[in-house]
Simulated assay, not measured.
Amino acid sequence: MSQDHEPEATRRESGETESSSANRAWWDRNADDYQREHGDFLGDHRFVWGPEGLDEADAGLLGPVAELRERRVLEIGAGAAQCSRWLAEQGARPVALDLSHRQLQHARRIGDQAGTVGTGSGGGAGAVALVEGDAGALPFAAGSFDLACSAYGALPFVADPVRVLREVRRVLRPHGRLVFSVTHPVRWAFPDEPGPEGLTLTASYFDRTPYVEQDESGRAVYVEHHRTMGDRVRDVVTAGFRLMDLVEPEWPAWNRQEWGGWSPLRGALIPGTAIFVCERD
């Protein structure tokens, strides 16, 4: 793709292979800008579930903080591993997995500065192990983890979310908990704009056609997949989880930032994030 060519935004089908390849390359290209733009909000060791700023330290969706100690936790789509670093500070034993090599380089940079980075799937107290891998084919043995989490990681970008959820279930121990956040499905019916123009419904909520950015040859360079709220619930159940809670964070008065289509204006009127709290049998 030529440097002066802007990707074309369209809605079209995009399968597993194309979606994975496009999104790995997109995050590798854009990781620097992403961390530069959002790093202050995310912090180096803060666990936030989305642009609203709901903090796991307050929400306790993974369970009481005191009970995280010594728990093996898998973070999926970890980016620069800010959430895993917070978990390590609570005494957990996190593994941060991401598809993007460049995102994990940022995780290593921040971890090296804090002295909390490890390699492979091990790591001692306070360490964060970094693993490059695909959420649809997790490189871990069955029953390796007590908990799994994903804050806008992997699931919005995959063509087959049930495959990912089944993989997560496989690596969780019995009664293990999975908590993941995604763009609230209702947002797909509105333009991705933070201002008043983002308050006018322009598309069918029921249109599951993926959002694709493609180059001049028609090759996808970024893909997001839409699921309705009912689809997400069915995906969770089909993969063998029980849905324990569904959280739709309200926009707090202290948060004045805009993040893409998320903003105080829109956040006061429609939900922007959906968080699914699940448990395997």
Score class of each variant (00 low, 15 high):
Thr200Ile: 13
Gly153Arg: 07
Val162Glu: 14
Leu172His: 04
Phe157Leu: 11
Val128Gln: 12
Ala148Ile: 06
Asp146Met: 04
Pro264Asp: 06
Leu87Ile: 09
Gly136Ala: 13
Pro185Gly: 11
Thr183Asn: 09
Gln103Leu: 13
His225Lys: 14
Pro210Gly: 04
Gln105Trp: 01
Glu56Val: 05
Tyr211Trp: 10
Ser144Ile: 06
Gly91Asp: 06
Leu147Arg: 11
Phe241Arg: 11
Val65Lys: 14
Gln35Met: 02
Ala78Val: 06
Leu138Gln: 03
Gly43Cys: 05
His184Ile: 11
Glu67Tyr: 00
Ala80Asp: 13
Phe140Met: 00
Ser84Tyr: 04
Asp231Ile: 07
Phe41Glu: 06
Gly230Arg: 10
Glu75Lys: 05
Ala81Ser: 09
Met1Arg: 13
Pro264Tyr: 04
Phe241Lys: 09
Gln3Val: 12
Ala239Thr: 15
Tyr152Asn: 01
Gln103Met: 15
Leu42Met: 13
Met229Pro: 01
Ala81Met: 04
Ala142Gln: 08
Ile275Glu: 11
Ile76Asn: 00
Tyr34Thr: 06
Ala96Ser: 04
Asp32Lys: 09
Leu246Cys: 11
Asp281Gln: 08
Trp262Ser: 15
Val212Glu: 05
Trp259Val: 12
Glu224Asp: 08
Ala9Glu: 14
Ala92Ser: 09
Leu68Ile: 07
Gly126Asn: 09
Asp98Cys: 08
Phe180Thr: 06
Ala114Met: 11
Arg266Trp: 13
Ala203Leu: 05
Pro174Leu: 05
Glu224Val: 15
Pro51Asn: 09
Gly261Trp: 10
Gly198Gln: 01
Asp58Phe: 00
Leu62Lys: 08
Trp188Phe: 13
Arg280Gly: 15
Gly153Tyr: 02
Gln257Pro: 00
Asn23Met: 05
Phe157Lys: 01
Leu172Gly: 04
Gly124Tyr: 02
Pro94Gly: 12
Ala159Gly: 10
His5Ile: 15
Thr17Tyr: 03
Arg227Thr: 01
Gly123Glu: 12
Asp28Pro: 01
Leu74Cys: 10
Val48Tyr: 03
Asp4Ile: 08
Leu265Asn: 07
Phe206Asn: 04
Glu258Pro: 01
Glu56Gly: 02
His101Arg: 14
Met229Glu: 14
Gly53Tyr: 07
Val247Asn: 10
Ala137Arg: 15
Glu250Thr: 14
Val65Gln: 13
Ile275Leu: 12
Gly43Met: 08
Ala159Thr: 05
Gly195Asn: 14
Gln3Met: 11
Gly272Thr: 06
Thr10Pro: 01
Leu97Asn: 00
Ala96Glu: 03
Leu243Gln: 01
Ser204Trp: 10
Leu42Ser: 04
Gly176Thr: 02
Arg166Ile: 01
Phe206Gln: 08
Trp27Tyr: 15
Arg242Val: 11
Tyr34Trp: 11
Tyr34His: 13
Ala137Met: 02
Ala239Phe: 12
Arg109Cys: 00
Val131Ser: 10
Arg12Asp: 05
Gly126Pro: 11
Ala253Gln: 12
Val117Ile: 14
Trp27Lys: 07
Glu37Met: 09
Arg69Cys: 03
Val179Met: 06
Val182Tyr: 02
Ala127His: 10
Gln35Gly: 00
